[in-house]
Amino acid sequence: MRFATRILAFLTIAASATFAQLAPEPQSADVPLMQDSTGSPMKMDFSLPLSGVSDPGILFSHFAKRPLIVYYFSPKCPHCQKHFPEVQGVMKEYESAGVTGIAIAIGGNIKKNDIRMFIDQFKVVIPVFQDGSQKFGPIYGNGYVPVLYLVQPDGTFYRYESLDEAHMNHLRTMLNKIKK
């Protein structure tokens, strides 16, 4: 009986290994570095006049020359609200690898109080800015929110226009390269 149990256990392990090998690799989106109109890689301009909301004294320039994740959002956008907890989780996960996370709220008719309510409601622990001068969005945005950016220490960056699984897999792949 023991022999039969061992064979059954072996066959179960062998079958599991075979099926595991057949499982598809997680899909990853093809996200190129952002380029300007000449085809050269764009660089993030850390001199843009963003207003600190969570800390009024903090400057955007403080985050230059380091790996940075930027979450560009509207505090009233349901999609932004839905994705923020996952994005903040990724930011916190890679913090020990030297990656910093910040959020930038759109400008326009958004009031600082709306942003503060978002901070409270979603337990935001990262620095939050507002694009009050409305310069960030026209330069780096695509007209929609949320948008996620992975900025490399040299200022070049990836723009994630979708926060689906394939784009988040690409982000994690790039973050794991930074982590090494």
Rank of each mutant, 00 (worst) to 15 (best):
P78Q: 00
H79F: 12
H79S: 09
C80E: 02
C80K: 04
C80M: 08
Q81N: 07
Q81I: 12
Q81A: 07
H83L: 06
F84K: 01
F84R: 00
P85D: 03
P85T: 06
E86Q: 15
E86R: 15
V87C: 06
V87A: 07
V87F: 05
Q88I: 00
G89D: 13
G89T: 13
V90F: 01
V90Q: 10
M91N: 09
M91Y: 08
M91T: 03
M91K: 13
M91L: 05
M91R: 10
E93D: 14
E93Q: 15
E93A: 14
Y94C: 06
Y94A: 06
Y94D: 07
Y94M: 06
E95F: 05
E95W: 05
E95T: 05
E95A: 14
S96N: 14
S96M: 12
S96C: 08
A97M: 11
G98Q: 03
G98M: 02
G98D: 01
G98L: 02
V99G: 13
V99K: 15
V99R: 13
T100S: 15
G101H: 13
G101P: 12
I102N: 15
I102W: 15
A103G: 13
A103E: 04
A103Y: 04
I106R: 13
I106G: 13
I106F: 11
G107Q: 03
G107T: 00
G108N: 12
G108R: 07
N109I: 13
I110L: 04
I110W: 02
I110H: 02
I110P: 08
K111Q: 14
K111V: 11
K112F: 11
K112N: 15
K112I: 12
N113T: 11
D114C: 02
I115S: 08
I115H: 05
I115C: 11
R116K: 14
R116F: 01
R116D: 10
R116L: 11
M117H: 08
M117Y: 03
M117C: 06
F118R: 09
F118W: 04
F118Y: 04
I119L: 12
D120A: 15
Q121H: 05
Q121D: 10
Q121P: 10
Q121S: 12
Q121Y: 00
K123C: 05
K123G: 06
V124S: 03
V125H: 09
V125A: 09
V125I: 04
V125L: 06
V125R: 10
I126E: 09
I126C: 10
I126T: 09
P127K: 07
P127W: 03
V128M: 10
V128C: 09
V128I: 02
V128A: 10
F129H: 11
F129N: 08
Q130P: 07
D131Q: 04
D131I: 00
G132W: 05
S133W: 11
S133I: 00
S133V: 01
Q134G: 01
Q134N: 06
K135I: 07
K135R: 03
K135E: 12
F136P: 10
F136R: 02
G137L: 00
P138G: 12
P138I: 05
P138S: 07
I139A: 09
Y140P: 10
N142G: 09
N142C: 01
N142S: 06
